[in-house]
Design a protein around this nucleic acid. Structure first.
Lengths: 111, 111
DNA sequence: TTGTTATATAACTAAATAGCTATAAAATAA
DNA sequence: TTATTTTATAGCTATTTAGTTATATAACAA
């Protein structure tokens, strides 16, 4: 993989590396929502959510549709969920691994 | 997905959000390597690589084995590659989408 | 017009961090 | 012992950024 691809992927990861932005994704994973609805679900200030949404829109992670005063945001594609699934699986593996390691240590202490 | 899971996943993404750390993963994707080998491949200072490796080790992304003066690092699991694959696919989709959008705009301008 | 609602943005602050230099630690060799 | 090699870490600086408050923009209603 070339360096510039690495930089692009790293930037995409950076967008996904903020809990508040993942909460936004969680809020819209079932379908498009207005900014206000997302604000309520993610429990943050309107300015903060709006800034995150703008950033996510600029980077192509979400799409939007304006209707009167409201602005509806939705996911650009669903790869992000597969990604989160893999990451959580990886975290799970890691915790199992550490647990096993701790257990082995306890075993050798009690033997 | 509960908030604490979101925080864990966000942290994992954060580790993956630095190009230099992705270069390290690229270096060791074929098997374990010493710190010095990784330094040469990733083209960074020894202190910098060592700091990144320590962080990646602490968070369970890589494992290590010491042998005399050398220290060998390897991937903890290969989910990270599936993740990068999905991300790059997502970036690809996004670029196609934008390209289509630009083409449509050009079409409507030339019509 | 004026007022209200929904969203975006500007300016700021505090906190986090990537990379640097210098040095410590630890294993090996002479 | 002393010297060398490999890796880790401490301390520092400059940059980035999440969240805040205040304000701007823009659509709608009266």
């Amino acid at each position: 993989m070339p360096d510039d691809m690495i930089v692009s992927i790293a930037y995409r990861f950076k967008i996904l590396s903020e809990p508040m932005r993942l909460k936004i994704l969680r809020a819209i994973c079932g379908g498009e929502k207005t900014v206000q609805e997302i604000v309520n679900e993610a429990q943050a200030s309107q300015a903060n959510i709006s800034k995150h949404l703008s950033m996510m829109y600029e980077s192509g992670l979400v799409e939007r549709r304006k209707d009167g005063l409201k602005c509806y945001y939705r996911l650009a594609d669903d790869n992000v969920f597969k990604v989160c699934g893999l990451i959580s699986k990886s975290i799970e593996n890691n915790m199992k691994h550490r647990l096993k390691w701790i257990n082995n240590k306890n075993d050798s202490l009690t033997q």
